[in-house]
Structures are given as C-alpha cells and as structure tokens.
Simulated scan of single mutants.
Amino acid sequence: MSATQLALEGELSIFTAALVKERLLAALNGADAVEVDLSRINEIDSAGVQLLVAAKTEAQAQGKNLGLVHHAPVVLEILDLCDLSGYFGDPVLISSRR
C-alpha cells in the first residue's frame, strides 16, 4: 500500500498551525500512511515543530505511519537544533527543488 502524499509549503508557524493541523489530520483520517513533503517550507518556528511532533504522535496512536520527506534546509536546521531527527526516524534528504 502506498502512502498518501501531503505537500506543505510556505510557513509552518504559529500563524499557519491551525490550518496545517486540519490538513494533517484529514490526511491521517483518510490513509494508513502519510508522507509529508517539507521541501517547500521556507519558515518554521516552535509551533511548527510542535505540530509535526503532535502529528507523529497522533499517527502512532492510530496505528498509522506519518513520515517526513524532502526536508527543506530550515526544517533540517530546527530538527537538528531540537535534536528531533531521531524521533521522526525518517531519512533526512534535502530536496534539490527550489
């Protein structure tokens, strides 16, 4: 079974958290696995990180898989700063798309 793809772009911040949360939950409700493409994220703050952690936790609680793919440099930077790369357990690759 292939994963549902969900591409996020722009800000992943306190200003967009509610909308992104709705999109993440809808994707999880409609699939057993979701891949979140982060290649077009240009800004992320602590609310964005908390949202990704909450989405991963919710997926695990539902017995589903949520993976992060194509990490933008700003995402890699904050995951490294917060020492969370291991928590998500996804291969960390930077997308060549710009």
Rank of each mutant, 00 (worst) to 15 (best):
residue 98 R to M: 00
residue 68 L to R: 02
residue 15 F to R: 08
residue 84 L to D: 02
residue 96 S to G: 10
residue 13 S to L: 04
residue 95 S to L: 04
residue 65 N to C: 08
residue 66 L to Q: 09
residue 30 G to Y: 03
residue 95 S to P: 03
residue 36 V to Q: 06
residue 36 V to C: 13
residue 96 S to N: 03
residue 66 L to M: 09
residue 18 A to R: 15
residue 14 I to E: 10
residue 94 I to T: 14
residue 38 L to G: 07
residue 41 I to Q: 11
residue 87 Y to R: 07
residue 20 V to F: 04
residue 15 F to M: 07
residue 94 I to P: 00
residue 28 L to G: 12
residue 76 L to V: 12
residue 3 A to L: 11
residue 52 L to Q: 04
residue 58 E to H: 10
residue 5 Q to E: 11
residue 6 L to V: 04
residue 51 L to Q: 08
residue 83 D to T: 14
residue 70 H to A: 15
residue 92 V to F: 05
residue 15 F to W: 10
residue 94 I to A: 10
residue 49 V to S: 08
residue 42 N to K: 13
residue 13 S to H: 13
residue 47 A to N: 10
residue 87 Y to L: 13
residue 7 A to H: 10
residue 25 L to S: 08
residue 37 D to K: 13
residue 18 A to W: 09
residue 65 N to I: 07
residue 67 G to E: 13
residue 50 Q to K: 10
residue 22 E to A: 12
residue 67 G to Y: 05
residue 50 Q to H: 06
residue 44 I to C: 07
residue 57 T to I: 05
residue 29 N to W: 03
residue 63 G to E: 07
residue 21 K to C: 05
residue 71 H to E: 06
residue 50 Q to A: 15
residue 76 L to F: 07
residue 80 D to S: 14
residue 18 A to M: 05
residue 10 G to D: 10
residue 28 L to I: 14
residue 15 F to A: 14
residue 21 K to E: 15
residue 84 L to S: 03
residue 27 A to G: 03
residue 54 A to P: 00
residue 60 Q to F: 14
residue 97 R to K: 12
residue 62 Q to W: 11
residue 21 K to T: 05
residue 92 V to R: 05
residue 77 E to A: 10
residue 41 I to S: 05
residue 13 S to F: 11
residue 20 V to E: 05
residue 74 V to H: 01
residue 57 T to L: 04
residue 77 E to C: 00
residue 88 F to M: 02
residue 36 V to G: 09
residue 18 A to L: 10
residue 55 A to W: 08
residue 28 L to M: 12
residue 89 G to Y: 12
residue 14 I to R: 14
residue 34 V to I: 06
residue 81 L to V: 01
residue 2 S to A: 11
residue 77 E to R: 07
residue 6 L to K: 11
residue 9 E to T: 13
residue 91 P to Y: 09
residue 35 E to D: 15
residue 48 G to S: 07
residue 30 G to A: 14
residue 50 Q to V: 01
residue 38 L to C: 09
residue 61 A to N: 14
residue 51 L to H: 08
residue 80 D to Q: 15
residue 14 I to N: 11
residue 1 M to R: 04
residue 40 R to H: 10
residue 28 L to W: 08
residue 49 V to D: 06
residue 6 L to A: 04
residue 42 N to L: 12
residue 61 A to G: 11
residue 75 V to A: 02
residue 91 P to R: 02
residue 33 A to C: 04
residue 66 L to G: 05
residue 83 D to Q: 15
residue 92 V to S: 10
residue 57 T to N: 09
residue 13 S to G: 09
residue 27 A to L: 03
residue 69 V to D: 01
residue 74 V to E: 00
residue 10 G to K: 06
residue 51 L to N: 12
residue 75 V to H: 02
residue 87 Y to S: 04
residue 60 Q to V: 15
residue 21 K to Q: 08
residue 72 A to Y: 03
residue 63 G to Q: 03
residue 55 A to C: 09
residue 11 E to R: 13
residue 59 A to L: 02
residue 13 S to T: 15
residue 59 A to K: 00
residue 90 D to V: 00
residue 10 G to Q: 09
residue 38 L to K: 09
residue 19 L to Y: 13
residue 26 A to Q: 11
residue 6 L to F: 06
residue 48 G to L: 06
